[in-house]
Design a protein around this nucleic acid. Structure first.
Lengths: 149, 149
DNA sequence: AATATTATTTAGAATAGTTCTTGATAAAAA
DNA sequence: TTTTTATCAAGAACTATTCTAAATAATATT
């Protein structure tokens, strides 16, 4: 019995001979409709609602393929599970230590994130990441205690 | 037979009822005499030269205790193994994707690292991390290719 | 269309860094 | 000294992720 039935409405080129498969499309759709930054497992759970036969390994594969193709971003906060994000515009991340969510923060116009550091002379810079840790406005307001021991 | 013989020259208070034990002291000494950013396993190897009976689990315990006490820093680059650093002054990190080393970079005087981002209003900021990825001067000079597939 | 080639999916095994468990040991407090 | 608390060590356990291998599907070629 065939597992795949869905027709693709629009084909996005992933480059390198990679195909936009139904699984990759569903994973991509889930990410594009997420404002939070789900982990692979969270993506898996959301994807399962649309395609119950998909496996976690495939979700990992798809996320990796999409990230390598450059159409989604992999976001790492310390050594916690990787999170994925469909926002391709340059931005930084805020990590709330109380509710453990990750949210985007915009960069100020005209200010280079690398401007605050003395870059080693002769180095080739590929990317500069700015990550802020603390307590998000929501958690400050409700005065929650940290849920991380 | 007793495992611990070394007398402590100077007792550093770790707070919270924690003791500066011979193992913790050796781990601390190794870190303070390292200019690179060794992983737990690398610290373990260096520590073994001074105290051959120590276990990897103890090195992990010591590193954690020292980090919680705030006298060393734990440095995370993406989801790679944690690295440890005795430099307590505020600074950023440069990660070379060719030789995989992590080096400190100084902050520019009078420039706040958080100055490049629009911090969420109402949030409580705990720390701002700036990480730069690229190729270090040494690797640029010798024109090495990436060693990461 | 039929065949050959290549890419993809899947389940489960394997991996690696780290944490946890347990009993023994040692230091500090009483 | 006795009691309490902290620490150490070995190995088991855990977890996020990657790998393996076989089945399947899509694309290219004939």
């Amino acid at each position: 019995m065939p597992v795949h039935k869905k027709k693709l409405s629009e084909k996005i080129d992933l480059g390198g001979g990679h195909r936009m498969t139904p699984q990759r499309q569903v994973v991509y759709d889930v990410l594009m409709s997420s404002r939070d930054h789900p982990t692979a497992t969270e993506v898996f759970i959301r994807v399962q609602e649309k395609m119950s036969s998909i496996s976690l390994a495939t979700v990992y594969n798809c996320l990796d393929t999409l990230a390598v193709a450059g159409i989604v971003k992999q976001v790492n906060v310390d050594r916690e599970p990787s999170r994925y994000c469909g926002n391709l515009a340059p931005h930084a991340h805020f990590h709330c230590e109380t509710c453990a969510t990750v949210m985007d923060i915009d960069l100020k116009d005209g200010v280079e994130p690398s401007g605050s550091v003395k870059l080693p002379r002769g180095a080739k810079i590929q990317k500069v990441e700015v990550a802020v840790r603390g307590q998000c406005p929501e958690c400050v307001r409700t005065n929650k205690r940290k849920n991380i021991s």
